[in-house]
């Protein structure tokens, strides 16, 4: 099993940290993992993206052009990455701010209105964990217990009291995600 993922959105949406949590969780599950961020000028206040690979085998190229799953969190990223999903692959997107919805017919498309829900529940900082929950629902690779272990490992101790909130957000995300195609 090898899952090649791109997560893309605005800087500040927690794109890189969601990728990091995936990688940590994969590591806790004894998988091979890689996390390759964009670190260019776009990091300084524009779009950000990260490639995450979770695999049972030694990972070859950490840099990819086509993905099993694309998690898309703004319109610019939709324009950039919709075509990068492998035929038969998965596209997950947040509808917030999307003016042109995905048009591919050869992939499975899910929508998760995580930004709206996070704002309604006053949990804006948990936005990326709603999305993470959605991903975990439709691609059951990472198990919640290992994600929690991953959070414990990756977060400084002073934030550990927020882990239950993260867990709630993941559960909520699992309910929130809807298949649209």
């Amino acid at each position: 099993m090898t899952e090649e993922i791109v997560i893309a959105g605005f800087g500040g949406q927690g794109v890189l940290s969601m990728g990091k949590i995936m990688a940590y969780s994969g590591m806790m599950q004894d998988m091979e993992v890689s996390w390759m961020p964009s670190y260019g000028p776009e990091m300084r206040g524009g779009t950000a993206n990260v490639n995450v690979i979770l695999s049972d085998e030694r990972i070859s190229s950490p840099i990819l052009r086509s993905f099993d799953t694309a998690i898309i969190l703004n319109q610019q990223s939709m324009d950039k990455f919709e075509q990068s999903v492998k035929p038969g692959g998965t596209l997950i997107y947040d509808g917030n701010g999307i003016t042109r919805h995905p048009e591919r017919k050869d992939i499975t498309i899910y929508r998760i209105d995580a930004a709206e829900e996070a704002s309604k529940l006053k949990m804006i900082k948990m936005f990326n964990m709603f999305v993470m929950g959605g991903f975990m629902k439709v691609k059951p690779i990472l198990k919640t217990e290992y994600v929690i272990k991953g959070l414990k490992k990756s977060l400084p101790e002073r934030y550990h009291h927020m882990i239950p909130m993260n867990e709630d957000a993941i559960k909520r995300g699992m309910d929130l995600i809807k298949q649209v195609q």
Partner: peptide
């Protein structure tokens, strides 16, 4: 190079 420097792995 920048890729290996910036990427995370086990």
């Amino acid at each position: 190079d920048g890729a290996i420097g910036q990427m995370m792995e086990k």
